[in-house]
Structures are given as structure tokens and as C-alpha cells.
Simulated scan of single mutants.
Amino acid sequence: MFSTVILFGIDGKRRDWMMNWQFNWFGWSYKLAIASTILQFIAGILSVYQGLNKYLLDMYDFIKEEQELEKRSTLKFPPLPHTSGQRNGSKTQLHQYM
């Protein structure tokens, strides 16, 4: 979008670039494109800063949330006794079909 706004701003009034150059004028839509390009540039800088800052990792305690989810889990089953041919430690109800 940035390159389009710059290109049209530079070449919009040239006689050899567009047909009917005398009717080409920068109206409200071009001004809106300039404003949206500036806002898009600011949003891009902010998202790069947010991604590089890794502030989400500092603000959100993943280990604490994982422990809380494990504590609230309803699919916990004790590990099965060791028998030949079966897997140990199944945490779902599907261990009876193995």
C-alpha cells in the first residue's frame, strides 16, 4: 500500500503515465489512502515491537496456568499396573480397548 500511494503521488500527474491526465486529481480517496498507510505503518511498528519485546511471556505465567488446567482436568486416571503387551500410564478411558 505504501508503494502504491508513493507511486501514484509521484506519477499521478504525468501525461505519459495515465490517460486523460488533465482529469486526474487527488481526491478524498487518495487522502484516505495516505491516512490509512500512515496508520498501517504505525500498527506494523507496534506489532513488531510487541513481537520482539516478548512482553506476553513476562505478563503471562504459562507454568502456573498449565498446573491450574492439570488440577481442573477431569480425564485423570491412575496408571495401569504393568502387564505384558499393554502400555503404562494411559490417561484416557481408551486404555481398556488396547
Rank of each mutant, 00 (worst) to 15 (best):
Leu80Thr: 11
Val5Gln: 00
Leu39His: 02
Leu69Gln: 14
Tyr49His: 10
Leu7Val: 06
Lys54Gln: 09
Leu57Glu: 10
Gly12Met: 01
Leu32Asp: 06
Arg72Gln: 07
Ile63Pro: 00
Gln50Asn: 13
Gly27Ile: 00
Trp17Cys: 15
Leu80Cys: 13
Phe77Ile: 12
Tyr55Pro: 12
Phe62Thr: 13
Ile63Ser: 13
Lys76His: 08
Met19Glu: 13
Asp58Asn: 11
Asn20Met: 03
Pro81Tyr: 02
Pro79Asp: 04
Gly27Tyr: 00
Ser29Met: 08
Phe2Pro: 11
Leu80Tyr: 03
Ala43Val: 01
Pro81Asp: 02
Lys13Ile: 00
Asn20Cys: 12
Leu32Pro: 05
Phe8Asp: 08
Ser47His: 06
Gly12Ala: 00
Ile42Gln: 01
Phe41Asn: 08
Lys54His: 12
Glu68Ala: 14
Ser73Asn: 12
Trp21Asn: 11
Ser36Ile: 01
Tyr49Lys: 13
Gln50Met: 13
Ile10Ser: 07
Tyr49Met: 08
Met18Val: 12
Pro81Leu: 03
Leu46Arg: 10
Asp58Gln: 14
Gln50Leu: 15
Asp58His: 06
Glu66Asn: 10
Met59Ser: 15
Ile45Asn: 09
Asp58Lys: 13
Met18Leu: 14
Leu57Ser: 13
Ser36Phe: 02
Phe77Ala: 10
Glu66Phe: 11
Phe41Gln: 01
Ile63Leu: 09
Gly44Asn: 04
Ser47Glu: 12
Val48Glu: 04
Ile45Trp: 04
Trp17Pro: 05
Ala43Lys: 03
Tyr49Trp: 08
Ile10Leu: 07
Pro78His: 06
Val48Trp: 01
Ser29Asn: 12
Pro78Ala: 07
Ser36Thr: 09
Ile10Val: 06
Phe8Gly: 03
Pro81Gln: 03
Ser73Leu: 05
Thr37Gly: 07
Trp21Ile: 05
Asn20His: 08
Ser47Gln: 09
Ile6Trp: 09
Ile63Tyr: 04
Pro78Trp: 01
Phe77Cys: 12
Gln40Lys: 11
Ser73Thr: 03
Asn20Ile: 04
Thr74Phe: 04
Met59Gln: 10
Leu57Gly: 14
Ile42Phe: 05
Tyr49Thr: 12
Leu7Phe: 12
Asn20Tyr: 11
Phe41Ala: 07
Ile10Arg: 14
Leu57Phe: 08
Ser3Glu: 10
Trp28His: 13
Phe2Val: 07
Ile42Arg: 04
Thr74Trp: 00
Thr74Ile: 09
Ala33Asp: 04
Glu70Met: 08
Asn53Ile: 04
Tyr55Asn: 12
Gly27Thr: 00
Ser47Val: 01
Ile45Pro: 09
Trp25Lys: 11
Tyr55Gly: 15
Ile34Arg: 09
Tyr49Pro: 07
Ser29Gly: 08
Met18Gly: 08
Ile10Pro: 04
Glu66Gly: 14
Gln67Ile: 05
Asp61Tyr: 00
Met59Pro: 08
Arg14Tyr: 05
Thr37Tyr: 00
Lys31His: 06
Gly44Val: 03
